[in-house]
Design a protein around this nucleic acid. Structure first.
Length: 289
DNA sequence: AAATCGTGGCG
DNA sequence: TCGCCAAGATT
């Protein structure tokens, strides 16, 4: 099996695809880039309100480029991985300075933007500009692994291999290629999910290699689960929480209160300073002005 | 190449 | 309950 049943897939999407706000007509490339970055490792449901709030406050790259990092970090709220917020602002600066304020069409130019990697560059080229390029995210990798290769999980990612695999499945027609990518991602998000795939509701069930093989369990390496409790990431989150919630400034004592282990606390604070998410002002700490 | 980087919800 | 997972990027 070297292809997916594209007609079945597209018809399924027409029926049950979610009307996400950035999928409508007239949504510009900047808005799409913004939602793609916000969606990195983040459930779509959490993204929508923040996406709207950002666009309301900063309609385009020029406005965001002029924003204070502190405001950007606050508006990011609790989406997680707050470095993305800073990179988004740097991305806006790059779009303004290098591309005359317009999001580039070219994948390589998109890849050069801060916070934009292989997935996001191709997602913008495809969804915003209708380019026929493979778009590979975790959903796409999982759907292809199951429906085409007949295995339960995608295994460790390899950009080159993954892109080639999806390129081979991509319809020749540009518009169908775009619809294909949207639909595969949606299928992975709604039906062909990681934990409890709903094969009964899957448009690809009649042709799915994994289902045909009796849904064999994955025998490859287990995806390593990132622990969170007790890690520096948790401490960073707690520290930043203090600065986000107040006026953006906190005394050392206020930061010290969030975590008992001084060594780890200092390490987390140092890393936040290194990332530019926090700055020291005299005896206090604050979000970067 | 493998580790790191938040947060919250669901099964 | 708690491990698992979510439209990845960067170093």
């Amino acid at each position: 099996m070297t292809s997916l049943d594209t007609p079945a897939l597209l018809s399924w999407f027409d029926r049950v695809g979610r009307p996400l706000p950035w999928r409508g007509d007239g949504v510009g490339a900047w808005e799409i880039l913004l939602c793609e970055v916000m969606s990195q490792q983040t459930p779509v449901a959490r993204v929508e309100p923040v996406w709207r709030a950002w666009l309301d406050r900063w309609p385009g790259p020029a406005e965001l480029a002029a924003a204070a990092p502190a405001d950007v970090i606050r508006m990011w709220g609790k989406l997680g991985y707050p470095r993305r917020a800073l990179r988004l602002r740097e991305c806006a600066l790059a779009v303004v300075d290098l591309h005359d304020g317009r999001v580039p069409h070219d994948v390589d130019q998109l890849l050069a933007l801060p916070g934009v990697g292989d997935y996001t560059a191709r997602a913008v080229a495809c969804f915003a500009y209708g380019r026929r390029v493979p778009v590979v995210d975790t959903n796409v990798r999982r759907v292809v692994a199951r429906a085409v290769r007949g295995v339960a999980e995608a295994g460790p990612p390899s950009t080159r291999r993954d892109l080639a695999a999806v390129e081979a499945l991509l319809p020749d027609d540009r518009e169908r290629a775009v619809a294909f990518s949207v639909a595969v991602m949606e299928l992975g998000a709604l039906v062909c999910t990681a934990r409890a795939p709903r094969c009964d509701d899957c448009p690809l069930a009649p042709t799915c290699a994994w289902l045909a093989a009796g849904r064999p369990e994955w025998d490859g390496p287990r995806r390593k689960v990132q622990t969170f409790a007790g890690t520096d990431r948790q401490v960073r989150g707690l520290l930043l929480d203090v600065l986000r919630d107040g006026d953006g400034t906190a005394a050392r004592s206020a930061l010290d209160a969030v975590w008992p282990d001084a060594t780890q606390r200092d390490r987390a604070l140092d890393s936040l300073l290194g990332d530019g998410l926090v700055v020291r002002v005299g005896e206090h700490y604050s979000l970067p002005a």
